[in-house]
Design a protein around this nucleic acid. Structure first.
Length: 284
DNA sequence: GCGATCCTGGCC
DNA sequence: GGCCAGGATCGC
């Protein structure tokens, strides 16, 4: 299963570049397509006969802009995948209306290519926006600045953090309203890189460590993008390529093992119902 | 702030 | 059969 965070979505975004300039001929949805706050009919209406002019990313959201003030906003959740011209899998029993199981949206282009959204768990969402800044979209309007947006200065990051003094640093990193793009893997890795305990509360973290945390998060995210994302099970980009970042993770999923760079033992704890891996000897 | 919840699939 | 999963929202 792919479970994309910022670097995986960025890798997918880059792999979708061939779609820019393509004209949308047809859009179809499965019965269970995770369409939110709009309807398949409205999306079809907004996209059919339009041309894709840009593909952007904001946090873990992918934004597909067309040439008539419409943007298709896609979140891949835990198991979403976008595939260009996937080999048609055999229709299994749940497959209906030409859709195999879990293929929830298909966009057919004038040149004959096809973009398919696959999402078995349906934690992802498909929505629409008609404003470039996403302010009319329920999801984008709540999102903080992207971690890689240069406009997110350490000062701004710290100010946004201070609004949530009771949060643990781990919860802070996962909170997409403060800054957007980190998920469980890179939150764990950023905290390790910054030498900060995931349990420490924001109110007990001076400005310097918070600034360090932002830098560490950015470094990890950039490194992960350079490596095409993390493939733990079978994450792949839209052309089926796997990532290599799994070879550079230091603490994630290493309970009971030393950190990958040998600086101490890794412990696993649970925070807000999710696993956190960290190294108490390194992270204070 | 935290826990429950939405889903399916893979793995033990 | 039970547990776990890379996410985010909602209600308390």
């Amino acid at each position: 299963m792919p479970m994309p965070e910022l670097p995986e979505v960025e890798t997918i975004r880059i792999s979708l570049a061939p779609l820019i300039g393509q004209r949308v001929e047809q859009v179809s949805f499965s019965k269970l397509a995770p369409v939110e706050t709009t309807t398949p009919a409205k999306i079809r209406q907004a996209l059919t006969d339009s041309t894709i002019i840009a593909i952007r990313r904001w946090g873990k959201y992918l934004l597909i802009d067309v040439d008539r003030r419409a943007t298709l906003v896609i979140h891949l959740g835990m198991t979403g995948r976008l595939l260009i011209n996937p080999p048609t899998p055999p229709l299994s029993k749940g497959g209906k209306g030409g859709f195999s199981d879990h293929h929830h949206m298909s966009i057919q282009f004038a040149d004959g290519s096809r973009l398919v959204l696959f999402d078995p768990r349906r934690f992802g969402t498909i929505s629409l926006s008609s404003k470039p800044d996403g302010s009319d979209n329920r999801f984008l309007s709540r999102l903080g600045p992207d971690y890689l947006d240069p406009a997110l200065t350490p000062e701004i990051f710290i100010t946004r953090c201070r609004r949530h003094p009771g949060l643990s640093l781990k919860s802070l990193l996962l909170h997409q309203g403060i800054a957007a793009g980190l998920g469980n893997i890179y939150a764990c890795e950023a905290l390790y890189r910054a030498g900060l305990s995931p349990k420490r509360r924001v109110r007990r973290a001076p400005d310097d460590p918070l600034s360090r945390l932002l830098s560490a998060a950015r470094e990890i995210l950039q490194l992960a993008i350079k490596n095409g994302g993390t493939t733990l099970r079978d994450y792949q980009d839209s052309l089926g390529r796997k990532g290599q970042m799994q070879n550079f993770l230091k603490v994630y999923a290493r309970e009971g093992l030393p950190t990958a760079d040998g600086h101490g033992m890794v412990k696993r704890i649970w925070q807000q119902g999710r696993s956190t891996w960290f190294c108490p000897e390194v992270q204070k």
